[in-house]
């Protein structure tokens, strides 16, 4: 690898060992990586623990798009964001965890807004089942105890 390439490119290694070559400007959209690069404690290969290749690829896709389209119309970016965050819940949770862990603000904002909108207006039971993975029987059996503990008044 030539030194000029190395200067502007960084290699991110996911938790399962896959490596991604990304431009430094894209990688430093993650504040955590930016700090590492600024402090010069990063070699060319930066390990990204806790994030698997699948999720890391998505995060990189998002960062690349945001980096490229800085000059583009904000509405285009918004459309991209809303399409990007339109995923299954597991992927969403993984992405949020990764974005939070690596401190990628734009991504985290878009994802949190999406989940917030999904939650908005849902009933308590619905949130427990859909977002927290409670099983229906747990809710039915623990409802009595919940009612006492919460002293439910509104629903």
């Amino acid at each position: 690898m030539s030194s000029s390439l190395e200067k502007n490119m960084l290699i991110l290694r996911s938790s399962d060992g896959e490596e991604f070559i990304v431009p430094e400007v894209v990688a430093v959209m993650s504040k955590a990586i930016k700090n590492m690069v600024e402090d010069e404690c990063a070699s060319n290969t930066i390990p990204v623990p806790n994030v698997d290749a699948n999720i890391l690829a998505m995060v990189i896709e998002f960062c690349k798009k945001h980096d490229e389209s800085e000059a583009e119309a904000a509405s285009d970016l918004k459309t991209f964001d809303s399409e990007f965050v339109n995923r299954g819940q597991e992927a969403l949770y993984d992405l949020i965890t990764a974005a939070n862990f690596r401190d990628v603000k734009e991504l985290l904002d878009a994802l949190c807004q999406n989940v917030a909108e999904m939650i908005k207006g849902k009933s308590v039971h619905h949130i427990r089942i859909q977002f927290l993975g409670y099983q229906l029987f747990e809710i039915l059996t623990s409802n009595f105890i919940w009612n006492i503990w919460c002293d439910r008044d509104f629903d």
Partner: peptide, 30 residues
């Protein structure tokens, strides 16, 4: 199945609170 850490949930609930503080009333029961 999948868990979100507490600080992630805080970010999400914060967004709901921006729109309507009283929406936290029922969320607190979850």
């Amino acid at each position: 199945r999948k868990e979100l850490s507490e600080d992630c949930w805080e970010l999400i609930l914060n967004r709901l609170a921006i729109d309507d503080f009283n929406s936290l009333q029922s969320l607190s029961l979850v």
